[in-house]
Design a protein around this nucleic acid. Structure first.
Length: 475
DNA sequence: TTTTGAGTTGTTCGA
DNA sequence: GTCGAACAACTCAAA
């Protein structure tokens, strides 16, 4: 009788889970294990801990329906895994690959360690269309520009059908931590109310979300994905991050729809390209492991960032005085999510208007986003700041007023997250400080009391940022 | 080796 | 109000 431990990480699902599926195929006894190691770099922020709790709970319940226990352990994997192998007399350990630099180092070490003990180790790709090392330029280099990268990806795509649900044979043990003892949920204070209202966590919820997106939103994706008030985006990012659904399952579902609804080709391609950005970020992180902390373009090391704790705090709390930015930051705080367009605006505002280092923003997002993902977060912040691969040109500084008028014309999104401005006529919602005194009075708003004056005037900030970039070029 | 075309998401200014 | 050009120069990827 063969026993295989399956070490679950960012793959908290039973369907299309290669490691789990192969373990079931290769053995009679499969033991799923999840290890929480808080000593690893980039430990989960508050929002992710909340999600992780519910995701593990959902997975554990699913397994229990097949009379299988999920073993939860807290501590260092390189100590816990060999101990579990010993305890259960396992012959092999299977896992799906992680791609964060520290995780790669850890997994490599554990693999060697286990193999030296005569244990078979198999790792699988469960979360990417391509391994980060697979796609190279014709001369064997790393792509640094998205479009040619994605063209190469599409050209080399070898579609695979998702694995069916892995059904383990019954295996019950009481050798598991109690999930609640990990205290992943906030207690005092309990700030998770907004998260509970917003999200359904787990594999089933992820599949329903995908189905709902394809049914209700895909048609509008290409044209309306930038409108935060209607949100025709997929909202799959946290599910993808925790591996409750895989990119191949999404790809496959889209192909099936396209087979009889050709009119969805354009929005599907647009949506797939967004998954392409995820792949691109993963391969950047793989080839440039310092991406989370260091400028991708080293010449940015000379950029004259300001360090202004007051400005940073105002941004974090949604008190910048620019409603579209503040609405986004409040959405983030309340739901653990922010619409993509607004993320760009908020990130641009922090780095270009306030000249705060992108890593300060990245850290805040890391702590507050349920979908915080090291590759996506690092690559995207650097892109916005201008220090990243295929970066936004330095003169492209979002005008938060214009963007607000363009993408939230009637202020629905602003009013949703800034109720203090709800009585203000739409004409002034994008820049309340321009409202005449009597209009403000009628709306019951006293600036700097109910809502702040802008931290900095847009034209002043724009000029200041352009000057800073000009000085960088002169270095 | 050199050349060529292109590069997520914009803004501002002046005609 | 609308439209096109300028914003700067650089790096990337392929021919």
């Amino acid at each position: 009788m063969k026993t295989i431990l399956v070490w679950l990480r960012h793959d908290l699902r039973l369907r299309d889970n290669p490691a789990l599926w192969h373990a079931v195929a290769d053995s009679q006894r499969v033991i799923p294990v999840y290890i929480l190691d808080e000593s690893m770099p980039w430990p989960y922020g508050g929002a992710q801990r909340w999600w992780l709790h519910h995701s593990l709970h959902a997975l554990s319940e699913s397994l229990l329906r097949d009379h299988v226990s999920l073993i939860l352990k807290r501590g260092a994997a390189h100590q816990l895994l060999p101990a579990l192998v010993e305890q259960y007399q396992a012959d092999a350990v299977y896992w799906n690959r992680c791609y964060e630099p520290a995780a790669i180092a850890r997994d490599t070490q554990i693999k060697t360690q286990l193999q030296q003990q005569g244990i078979t180790v198999h790792s699988f790709n469960a979360s990417l269309l391509h391994e980060p090392w697979q796609i190279t330029t014709k001369s064997g280099g790393t792509f640094r520009v998205f479009t040619p990268y994605w063209k190469a990806c599409c050209a080399q795509l070898t579609p695979r059908t998702p694995y069916p649900k892995a059904v383990c044979l019954p295996f019950v043990t009481h050798d598991s931590d109690n999930l609640s003892s990990w205290q992943l949920l906030p207690d005092k204070p309990d700030w998770a109310q907004g998260l509970r209202e917003t999200w359904r966590v787990g594999e089933t919820a992820a599949m329903q979300r995908l189905e709902h997106f394809i049914d209700q939103h895909l048609t509008y994706y290409a044209t309306h994905r930038d409108i935060p008030a209607v949100c025709h985006t997929s909202l799959l990012s946290p599910h993808l991050h925790f591996g409750e659904i895989s990119v191949w399952q999404i790809w496959h579902a889209l192909q099936q729809v396209l087979a009889h609804r050709a009119e969805l080709t354009k929005p599907s391609e647009k949506f797939l390209a967004e998954l392409g950005w995820r792949e691109f970020s993963y391969q950047l992180l793989y080839h440039f492991p310092a991406l989370p902390t260091q400028n991708f373009h080293a010449h940015f090391d000379n950029f004259a960032w300001h360090s202004d704790p007051f400005a940073l705090a105002a941004w974090q709390q949604g008190h910048t005085g620019y409603p579209i930015i503040d609405a986004g930051m409040r959405e983030l705080w309340h739901t653990g999510y922010m619409h993509n367009r607004v993320r760009m605006l908020a990130a641009s505002f922090l780095t270009k208007h306030l000249l705060q280092h992108w890593s300060a923003g990245a850290r805040w997002f890391w702590d507050t986003l349920v979908d915080a993902d090291l590759a996506n977060n690092s690559a995207s912040w650097q892109w916005v700041a201008g220090s990243g691969a295929d970066a936004a040109p330095y003169f492209r500084i979002f005008n938060p007023i214009l963007q607000s008028e363009k993408f939230d014309p009637d202020g629905t999104y602003i009013k949703r997250w800034l109720p203090e401005l709800a009585a203000l006529p739409s004409a002034y919602l994008h820049q309340p400080w321009q409202a005449p005194t009597n209009v403000l009075k009628q709306a019951g708003i006293v600036l700097d009391k109910h809502y702040p004056q802008p931290l900095i005037a847009h034209d002043v900030a724009r000029k200041r940022a352009l000057d800073a970039y000009a000085r960088l070029r002169a270095c």
